[in-house]
Nucleic acid binder design. Structure first.
Lengths: 185, 185
DNA sequence: ATTGATACTGAGTCCCACTCATCTTAGTTC
DNA sequence: GAACTAAGATGAGTGGGACTCAGTATCAAT
């Protein structure tokens, strides 16, 4: 495990600026916006962008990660909710957040960056485990439900909901259906 | 509704050649292969490719559609199956076919072509309607299930299964869960 | 055969991701 | 705080690929 020495102060500053600019630019003009535009908005030369993010996909990936950080943090709080339906709420929230950021994610997807919802959720694994456990012991969910499976299903729904722009009602119906299945058995 | 006059004989021939070439090239070298390469393999000038498929995404889309035609035909037969569990079989088959063509679709996805499983399924809408109807009257499925919803769910699963390479067992478990939900209510 | 529309050609344009030789600056040492 | 050096920034330049269009060839209808 190498320990890459810490970035110089200006480098750190620029990196942050570039990411900020990228989030904005890609949200507004789509993922096909040029790297030059990102550089311009960040007030930095192109070379600098490429120093921090060697390829455009790298930059896109970084943007996605940073967006997911927001999502993750936002949703993490729910894991602490006390009641038995917390799992259900949690899932609804994930879908909702996905839907809210639909425009951004769609834009990114448009030029090849697959948004790995699953990865983001994996970071929440411990929290989700707790939720599943609680739901299970409350009897709201079949005994043999595996967290992994839940995550896969949720990712799938989220992905599709984002891509196709499901409305709130449709999301609700779908979740209801899913939980019907999760309960049975 | 315009009636675009039929293509000239040579045009039709070239169109077919280009599509063939594109399927091969993209399968081998990924979706980032150049349009020139496709033209070369088709034995045609670049301009001709662009006459038939004005943008590269259009070409990619056409390739995907032609692949899906195979999938669709393959699966269409099942719609005729007589027994009440036909719907379930149908869904399983869709997932399986998706999994089989994972490599190809992954290649395409890699450079931004989202594979719209939903679109392909929409072409089967009448057949699926029949399946849903039959399942409903056989009581295998809740009365208020809408075809649209089924398609959305199936697309989602298929998409995720392709992207993440679900194994057969996992697909089975997931479908079982889904149908548990579809039955209830 | 004539003719007009339809289709093909491919050199050229433009845009964009990415490079690199050169200059600038942050952090360190005495 | 001056000198030093390695990390970082710069931006004109390169290569490649998507797409255009004026010119030419081909089809099919009379």
């Amino acid at each position: 495990m190498e320990t890459p020495r810490p970035l110089r102060a200006d480098a750190r500053r620029n990196r942050a600026r570039i990411l900020d600019a990228a989030v904005g630019v890609f949200a507004e003009r789509g993922a096909s916006a040029s790297t030059e535009e990102v550089a311009a908005r960040a007030g930095v030369a192109i070379g600098t962008v490429f120093r921090h993010f060697p390829t455009k996909p790298d930059l896109l990936k970084a943007v996605v990660m940073s967006l997911q950080d927001g999502l993750v943090a936002d949703v993490d709080a729910l894991a602490g909710a006390p009641d038995a339906s917390a799992l259900r709420l949690f899932c609804a929230r994930v879908l909702a957040v996905g839907a809210d950021n639909r425009a951004v994610f769609a834009r990114l997807a448009e030029t090849g960056t697959r948004v790995h919802v699953g990865d983001a959720l994996s970071r929440l694994r411990p929290a989700i485990d707790r939720l599943v456990e609680r739901a299970r012991s409350a009897g709201g969910v079949r005994a043999d439900l595996v967290t992994e499976e839940l995550i896969a299903l949720l990712s799938a729904l989220c992905q599709e909901a984002m891509a196709e722009g499901w409305g709130e009602e449709f999301r609700e119906r779908t979740l209801a259906l899913l939980f019907e299945g999760l309960a049975g058995g």
